[in-house]
């Protein structure tokens, strides 16, 4: 229990730091984003400016501490200001439209890639002396060296442009609507395959390599030799002794990797014009929509930290040493 509390505390603290970084960044930056904002916001009614004023320090008459206080309160209220490029919509409204797409696409793709990548990694480690295992390893090593967005481009080029098996982009066909039910869902799945594949293929290598390295370390442990000596069936050694131990670092590294994968997914969305937060970030960057950029960053940070917290909890369930507070 102490462990959970400690992790919970850390979760909130990290969150707080991320929120604060979000506050400090625009003030540290050389470009004076505040004045850019003032220019862009000309004509915006005063009432909706409150959150932006605090967050970017446009209220020059207020002290920085007061601005910070206002900013924190606004965040707690869920008020992230208005989106410049989507005026007069609030940042939160814009964001909440994009979120489900990203979460759905990335969530499913990441889950798939974690499961498949981990499985492949275990097999590759187990059979590491074979040619097949080595070539699989080589292929993943190679794929991992490419930028996500380029892999996305290539997939679009070959499977949407050259051979129009899949759509070029977007999340569903024009002319299909949410209310349509099954046709809508079908369209969404159809549009999600290529971007999902991009995310899955490029992140799979990470999971595969991580678990492979863990497995190789674990396979040299004495308890594996003992398990073999005891005459346990191979599947039992592989699952209950080797993989069960090798998966631990993968799980505890999940959040860190997630930050990396989210980064890649953002780019994937940009390539596929997929209406998630990645594509939104892209547009926001083009139009210097700082409130939106900040909000997206904040949101991603929250997502990663939540994932971090969850993986800490899962580790606790999987590793008795952590449960007893013995090992970090």
């Amino acid at each position: 229990m102490k462990y959970v509390l400690r992790k919970f505390f850390w979760f909130f603290f990290a969150l707080y730091i991320a929120v604060t970084i979000n506050f400090i960044l625009p003030r540290l930056m050389p470009g004076d984003p505040a004045s850019v904002l003032v220019n862009k916001l000309q004509g915006v009614e005063e009432g909706s400016m409150e959150a932006i004023r605090a967050a970017f320090g446009i209220d020059t008459d207020k002290s920085i501490l007061a601005q910070y206080g206002d900013y924190l309160i606004n965040i707690l209220k869920g008020d992230l200001g208005i989106s410049i490029s989507n005026y007069p919509y609030k940042v939160w409204d814009v964001l909440s439209k994009a979120l489900p797409w990203t979460i759905g696409l990335m969530g499913i793709a990441t889950l798939f890639s974690f499961i498949i990548g981990t499985f492949i990694g275990i097999v590759v480690a187990w059979k590491r002396k074979t040619k097949v295992a080595n070539s699989v390893l080589g292929i993943f090593l190679f794929i991992r060296s490419f930028p996500y967005f380029w892999l996305g481009l290539i997939l679009v080029y070959f499977f949407a442009f050259k051979k129009p098996l899949f759509p070029l982009g977007g999340a569903y066909s024009i002319g299909v609507f949410r209310g349509d039910g099954l046709p809508f869902i079908k369209s969404v799945i159809y549009h999600g395959i290529l971007p999902g594949l991009t995310i899955a293929i490029s992140s799979m290598g990470y999971w595969m390599l991580t678990i492979r390295n863990n497995m190789i370390n674990v396979l040299a442990e004495d308890y594996i030799i003992v398990a073999r000596a005891k005459g346990l069936p191979l599947t039992q050694i592989m699952n209950k002794y080797a993989a069960r131990n090798a998966i631990l670092p993968s799980v505890s590294g999940f959040a860190m990797a997630l930050g990396f994968i989210i980064g890649g997914s953002l780019l994937t969305e940009m390539v596929f014009s997929y209406p998630g937060i990645g594509f939104m970030l892209y547009q926001a960057v083009q139009q210097q929509d700082y409130p939106l950029i900040q909000a997206i960053f904040l949101f991603i940070a929250i997502a990663v930290m939540t994932a971090n917290f969850l993986s800490d909890i899962v580790i606790m369930l999987l590793d008795p040493r952590v449960r007893d507070g013995g090992k970090k």
Binding site: D222, Y223, I225, V226, A227, A229, K240, R244, N245, P320
Partner: peptide
């Protein structure tokens, strides 16, 4: 024929 291994510390599976 059975055996007790050199390093008892690591001879047991830590998660079982």
């Amino acid at each position: 024929i059975s055996m007790v291994f050199q390093s008892a510390m690591n001879a047991l599976n830590p998660v079982m």
